[in-house]
Amino acid sequence: MTGSEPTEVAFFETGTDAADGVQDRSQSDPADDDRRLPPPDLARRIFDVSPISTVVIDSAGAIVYANERAIETLRLSSDEIAKRSYEPSEWNISYEDGTPIPVDEHPVARVFETGEPEYGFEHWLELPDGTERWLVTNSRPVANDADEVEYVVVAFEDVTDLKRRGERLLSDHMRRLEFRADQAAVPPSLRVEEGEWRIEVESVVSLPDDATIQYMGTSDLSANDFVTAVEEVPHYVDVRLLSTSEGYSRIEARAKEATVAEVFQSLGGQPRAVIIAHDEVRFLGELPGDVDHRLAAEGIRRFHDNVELVSEDLVYSPHLLYDIVADALTDRQLATLDAAYFSGYFETPRTSTGGELADRFGVTRQTFNQHLRKAQQTVLEHLFEEIDRNH
């Protein structure tokens, strides 16, 4: 608990004057009061386990109570929360543009001043580990018999993921990044004496066992040399040639361990290519315009300590329909559709069968086909329904 025991009891006990403010009991019929009041201690227990982060602030500005979800969201212990007041200077909160929120604009201050609730207040909050989260807060007063605001109850939710997803959907641009690492990052099987090899990373599909299927292609190696080289990279297994056309070879490989390509994907972007030269390897990928490139660099450094950013370009990337469809699909449906497309399932003749792809995912062919049909239906619904709305 965060605060003195008397404060908590006064706020949560039922059948007392303090509870009158919380319950807003009618004065007309005492029998109605009895039916509306919860059993002893139930209000406090419900408050504790509520899925919404909630804190209670007294008239001195002290946080006298925080429920379990609030402790999780703020990443502080109950004792640490109890040592703070609501003032912005103690929480490092800011508006969207980074401007600190002054105390007189803080919703809790306004509720104490006006006695009116404040709903839908949005702001950034810096957590103890330095990360920032986007919160939406709703604040409501609890008045005493003299109609004075005695407490303010603040409920808040972390909607950072929703905000970032919305920013990606509304963004017309991506950033194309190129990172460089020295020769130590190049597997012996892929080292070149002169010139360079470019390997396109077409797609990375997640599997249920935390492995991935990666689809890659190149015009710089023969089909046999390409397959042999990738097979010699330790984290790739089950490498197979999908097609060779006009000197361009495409392969499918199962990655049993994490790879650099997954770094871009984990940040909402896409890996694009790996360029291998005599004394270096370069990783090319795209990230949404609102994602800090330093996050990608940190991810790649898990594999190669000496990586550095060597170029950055802003590129137009109208992926709105793809993002909307991807959001509508389950992870399994999206992975199934990705694998079917890049493995050549839709080509004539097929370079991958439904049975082969089902084996990759560890499911029956019937289950694979169900996921694929549902994914296709969702894509077509978004395509044709959007056309109908616009015509």
Rank of each mutant, 00 (worst) to 15 (best):
D129P: 10
H106Y: 10
R110H: 10
E122Y: 08
L127V: 10
D129H: 07
E132S: 12
T131Y: 07
G130Q: 11
L127Q: 14
P107N: 13
E118I: 12
T114F: 00
E118N: 07
P117E: 03
V108S: 02
V108C: 02
E126H: 06
E126V: 15
E118M: 11
V103R: 12
G130H: 11
L125Y: 09
W134H: 06
Y119T: 14
D104E: 15
E126D: 08
T131L: 04
G120P: 07
R110W: 06
E132G: 00
W134Y: 08
G120L: 11
P117W: 04
R133M: 04
W124I: 07
E113H: 11
W134L: 02
G120I: 13
V108H: 01
T131A: 05
T114P: 03
W134P: 12
E118G: 00
G130W: 10
E113T: 14
H123C: 06
V111P: 00
D104Q: 13
D104G: 02
F112V: 02
P107W: 09
D129L: 09
G115N: 09
P107G: 05
P117S: 10
E113Q: 13
D104R: 15
V108D: 03
H123Q: 12
L125A: 07
P128D: 05
E116R: 14
G115R: 07
D129N: 15
E118P: 00
E118R: 15
P128A: 04
E126M: 10
G120F: 09
F112S: 05
E105D: 15
D104S: 07
P128I: 02
D104A: 04
F112G: 04
R133V: 13
V111T: 11
Y119P: 00
T114I: 01
W134I: 04
R110N: 05
D104L: 07
E132M: 10
R133W: 06
R133C: 02
E116G: 03
W124R: 15
T114S: 15
Y119N: 14
E122Q: 15
F112N: 04
W124F: 13
P128K: 08
H123W: 12
V108T: 13
Y119S: 10
R133E: 04
R133H: 10
A109K: 13
L127W: 09
G115I: 08
P107C: 09
